[in-house]
């Protein structure tokens, strides 16, 4: 086998990790660049999902079964532990999304917008007016 085919084989053999990296970067990119809060949450979810795939694919053994022993013998089975861990991580991710969406609902009520730049403009304005105003001791 010459060098080039070997390199290609490694490249495509690790395809699951390329998917993980691509998804992770997409997610992070959306979180950082998008001004819409809902889209930020979507990006965050994509980012988290990529990590789930990382965990799940690393536990998979090619040609292996689920870890259930049907008959005596040495069957090859996939590692169940990362799958269980990810079950927990999915629950965490869902609760994070739920809290984030609940916050967005309240932000929408308080600011009448879900755009980051508008919210920040409001806040800057408010801080300036606070600096000028005189407080009255009650």
């Amino acid at each position: 086998m010459n060098f080039e085919t070997q390199w290609l084989q490694t490249f495509f053999g690790l395809y699951n990790y390329w998917i993980v990296v691509a998804l992770m970067m997409c997610g992070l990119f959306i979180v950082i660049t998008d001004g819409n809060l809902i889209k930020k949450v979507v990006g965050l979810t994509i980012f988290q999902t990529s990590v789930f795939i990382l965990y799940i694919s690393m536990a998979k053994v090619t040609g292996a079964t689920a870890p259930i022993q049907i008959e005596q013998g040495t069957a090859v089975y996939s590692n169940p532990l990362p799958h269980v861990l990810i079950l927990t991580a999915i629950v965490v991710s869902i609760s994070t999304t739920a809290v984030a969406l609940a916050l967005i609902v309240r932000i929408k009520r308080a600011y009448h917008t879900v755009e980051e730049d508008v919210i920040q403009r409001w806040d800057v304005k408010k801080r300036r007016s606070e600096k000028r105003s005189k407080p009255f001791h009650e």
Binding site: L28, L44, T96, A100, I104, I107, A110
Partner: peptide, 17 residues
């Protein structure tokens, strides 16, 4: 203060990352 909501959201995004 309504800015608490925005601060909380920012913390949520950073914290989750």
């Amino acid at each position: 203060d309504r800015r608490a909501l925005w601060a909380s959201f920012q913390y949520l995004v950073m914290g989750t990352i």
